[in-house]
Design a protein around this nucleic acid. Sequence first.
DNA 1: GCTGCAAGGTGATACGTTACACCAACTTAA
DNA 2: TTAAGTTGGTGTAACGTATCACCTTGCAGC
Lengths: 357, 357
Amino acid sequence: MAGIKDVAKKAGVSVSTVSNVINGRHAKMGAETLRRVQDAIAQLKYTPNAVARQLQSGQIRTLGLIVPSVANPFWGNASQMIEKEAKERGYQVLICNAERDPEAEDSYLTSLHGSGIRGVILGSSPVSLDHLRQHAERGMRIAAFDRNTQGIQDLLACSVSVDQALGARMAARHLIGLGHRRIGFISGPIGTASRIARLEGLRAEMDRAGLALDQDLLWLGRTATGFGDSQAAELGRSAIRELLTLDDPPTAVFCVNDMYAIGALSGAREMGCRVPEDISIIGFDDIYLAKVMSPPLTTVHQPLQRMAQLVVAKLIDALEAEGEIPNRYLELRPELTVRSSTAHAAARPRETGAVAT
Amino acid sequence: MAGIKDVAKKAGVSVSTVSNVINGRHAKMGAETLRRVQDAIAQLKYTPNAVARQLQSGQIRTLGLIVPSVANPFWGNASQMIEKEAKERGYQVLICNAERDPEAEDSYLTSLHGSGIRGVILGSSPVSLDHLRQHAERGMRIAAFDRNTQGIQDLLACSVSVDQALGARMAARHLIGLGHRRIGFISGPIGTASRIARLEGLRAEMDRAGLALDQDLLWLGRTATGFGDSQAAELGRSAIRELLTLDDPPTAVFCVNDMYAIGALSGAREMGCRVPEDISIIGFDDIYLAKVMSPPLTTVHQPLQRMAQLVVAKLIDALEAEGEIPNRYLELRPELTVRSSTAHAAARPRETGAVAT
DNA sequence: GCTGCAAGGTGATACGTTACACCAACTTAA
DNA sequence: TTAAGTTGGTGTAACGTATCACCTTGCAGC
């Protein structure tokens, strides 16, 4: 294809001049020359070779974004917002789909580094970030998104997340306040930091209320991994069906994210169980689908737009600014969004006796 | 950062030898030398610079993927499958989110070309592909995905899609067969080829049955564009609310895709309208959420996995094979998936009189 | 007529790899 | 003994661009 030399030859100028045209240094040349070069560019359908450019400059205004699964609307939406935010700051974003696989994560990181990218936003990922250490040491700036960061902050350029445990506790408090005592938990495999925090938050708040988290009511995804979050709803459905056939089923269920909750909604109804009359269901994330469910889903809201804005800003700061950036670790406050999938625990008797309010 | 020269110096060999090590030509050297080089690589934490590599080789095993909106699970899921398929063939995929904006599409194409990418999969996009002509002429191989291609095939390296119009006709036939005569259509702005085909399919089949598509029952998204498909469900909800407050409301609604249908489901229920007893709702795509809705959504199924497999295969053929590839334009048969959101038209009288079966 | 300077433009080098031609030192076989 | 291989390397020219020091010309000012 046409290169800068061809343009130079055609326009009868040096490559340097063509380069100047391309880079907008129009002041450096006569009007006639400029026109000739522009004509040549148009005629040859010349596009500057980004690869050569980057090799030369060493610079690249591109961020990596590693998400657990683009098939989950939460991450689809997050990607969209992060991309928009980055674009406004003149950065591009490369979306990488790791499917919650640490090895894939690792290989993306190496490949991004090899492409000259030095900043990456890491969506909720495996507990240990130790496999990230080498990347950090190589000069990759890593921003954690939607996960807690205790103990590994030294690896991170910055982090933005909601207080996961607090969110879970809000959900739990809401359920407990409605008189629920048997509360279930539905999740896929607990492999990521945010999922652990959500479970622990639930447990903590139940403890505080003198309630125990029944082991039988913990559904933690007995499935092969690897098919991504397109199956999450499906799993939520199986989960609640199992839970509901227990001798002493839960009266409320906390789902690790909205996709599971959506599935649970559906599964419960299939079992002839009304939501929220017979069972309360609460999710986490507040994806845009939550409010169009039937019934609309009570859930823990994450301020996604603000989060996107903040990670992008902090990460770019880390990349461009000289000294230390202040407030590198941001933990936002989640918000309980009460809709119609939760209600008072049914007063009707169950095997274990009536609920004491 | 460390380059190949640093490694060479440290290991006491030439850069050529290091290059050989990196590229697996181990037979070309002694065991001792190999070990020394590998040690040096490890110690310096050296990663080959992909940019320089690519500049040198001109080759790049990467495909572009331009989607209308990652926030729509259909496209999230499609991305995932296309990526998986490509990876199996040794290709990477760059996901670009165009938000149905032809300008964004255009600028992605230029930027991908500048990065050395010569093959791109274009998700449903604006009617005219004329703005793509220059890219095709520059040597970009374009594969159309999920859109019809009459009239513009010369621009395309290949295409894979379901027969959109046929799918819409299947939906219409299903509805008509259930006795519906007032059928509505809900969609966002009709800007893409696939949406037009879906609407026309509906109209054609209604014509055949001697039914007219009432202009008032056409809801075509009176909203600002630019926020992507995260709002589709929301729009579906508003749409059906408007339609249901009409003097003579529809008894069935065909939604341009499942996201709108999901919103419609919710909107209908809010209006106290039961689905499918009072109104039938049918979608398109069969995203994984369709079957966990309540009621589970009747919809037109797209064989996504097979489609992903085929585009990737055909596009890579177009890139790698010499001659013409056979069967470049694939049109798959959609399938009607009947679930529970559609039923016989209610026999009860409406203002306009009883429905004659 | 000379200096100084601005405007307009050029050439060479470097960016980090890879590919390819080439080389030195051995080994083998006739 | 020597021609022909083989093994284990090396040196260097690309790839397409940006940068920077430098060059030429014209002209104002004294």
